[in-house]
Design a protein around this nucleic acid. Structure first.
Lengths: 237, 237
DNA sequence: ACGAGATTATTTTGATCACATTCTTGCGGC
DNA sequence: GCCGCAAGAATGTGATCAAAATAATCTCGT
């Protein structure tokens, strides 16, 4: 029946106390983040409902939520799809990420005490290991964890949801960058950032953060990789 | 019947081609923006559905969407409410607004040509008039329009949704500030911003923007007004 | 006759609702 | 005070209706 031949969803395992809505949301979010949903192709409620074997209501709510977070785009036609990436949009998102996260880091700095710095170093250590092992999934996860841990040190959270939104929009392409890169300079940047945190040096922190983000993203944004992807996504994925 | 004595919703008129969902969303958004929903008091789906005389489904989706935009908060209990404002959170939101909007303005600057500058000046002129007339509703609306017009000059939009989210969270309190203020310095700041745009001077633009936002918000954030509100909202509203 | 563009018909998709189910919470008996 | 039960509230389902996309047909000028 309902064909949906080209749409594959990861079928995340369902957590114990989780509502259907949350489960569908997590699944779709992950699918978008990993770039499994082809940009431009409409994502219909019924297709997703059929694939995940749930009714339409939770699916529509999950799609709507992702639209609110700019991970999906709602057209006038009521069609929902993954927005197309362009070089210009990618550049905008990079700069936005830098502005947002430098700000977040600076506002969180005063709350990074000794114990928290040790925890952060531990995360970085694990990231280092994953790096050596070449485990991409873990590298992405731990890198996000590293950044999140810093920003969330600030107990008065306002930025993190916005940061997540930008991550969601960049998600698939960051993965793309990693899939081609052999080694990462990020570890050094992370060390610089941690040193700046230890010194409580706002400017140093900003510089390290910006460098870290740029290192991670410029490999996609500037070279021909993004262009190739934009033109024919399937050839790379 | 359904009591909900203290919850009043503006009952926006329903636009022609609008779905129930969109209408409920607009109504709730406006209510939150104007501070009509008391923070801390749970907003139940049923209450809203009864007040607006629609079924629960569109209400739930509207509430969920506002939660995604950080205008509402979903507790573990599945209860939904307007997050409480604290002095610290307010400060965070101000700084976030400044960081975001300075960035947005700077990224939009190259796209502000002659014709667009004239349009901007026209908006500012109308704002000036509203200011003289003391029409608060229009002042708020036009001020937002002024800022939005600048940021949206950038054709590769990524920031505006994030800015809207912050506006939503600050909304009620900005209104609060205006309700007490006699005159505004913003007009001058707007002139400075326009001058900087004309010169294509990034630093000057940032300075003017930051000053403009600070002028609008510090009156709430620093003085006893916010404190009074946080302690007993009803005494001020 | 032929084909580009408009138009209608069919089918797909989204929106809304009422009801069933599941979860939370607050009350009252012990 | 604690436990359990009942009322209230939210989630999820399937049905129904309206809107939009796609397919098929028609019109008209050449």
């Amino acid at each position: 029946m309902a064909a949906a031949a080209s749409l594959k969803l990861p079928a995340l395992e369902r957590l114990p106390k989780e509502t259907t809505n949350q489960w569908v949301y997590r699944s779709l979010r992950q699918a978008v983040m990993l770039g499994l949903v082809p940009p431009g192709r409409p994502v219909t409620i019924r297709d997703v409902a059929n694939i995940l074997e749930v009714s339409t209501t939770p699916v529509r709510e999950a799609l709507r939520r992702l639209s609110s977070e700019q991970a999906l785009e709602e057209l006038d036609n009521r069609r929902i799809l993954v927005p197309n990436m362009t070089a210009a949009r990618f550049r905008e998102l990079c700069e936005l990420r830098i502005a947002l996260e430098c700000h977040a880091a600076e506002r969180a700095m005063p709350y990074m005490h000794g114990a928290k710095l040790d925890e952060l170093a531990a995360i970085d250590k694990r990231l280092d290991d994953a790096n050596d092992a070449g485990d991409r999934e873990r590298i992405i996860a731990l890198n996000q964890q590293f950044h999140r841990f810093i920003y969330e040190a600030n107990p008065h959270q306002t930025v993190m949801p916005l940061v997540e939104s930008v991550w969601l929009q960049l998600g698939p392409f960051v993965r793309l960058a990693l899939s081609r890169l052999k080694d990462f300079y990020q570890v050094d940047r992370h060390s610089e950032a941690m040193a700046a945190l230890r010194r409580q040096d706002p400017l140093g922190l900003r510089i390290a953060m910006e460098a870290d983000i740029r290192d991670a993203l410029t490999h996609v944004g500037t070279n021909e990789l993004l262009k190739a992807y934009v033109e024919s996504p399937d050839s790379i994925a």
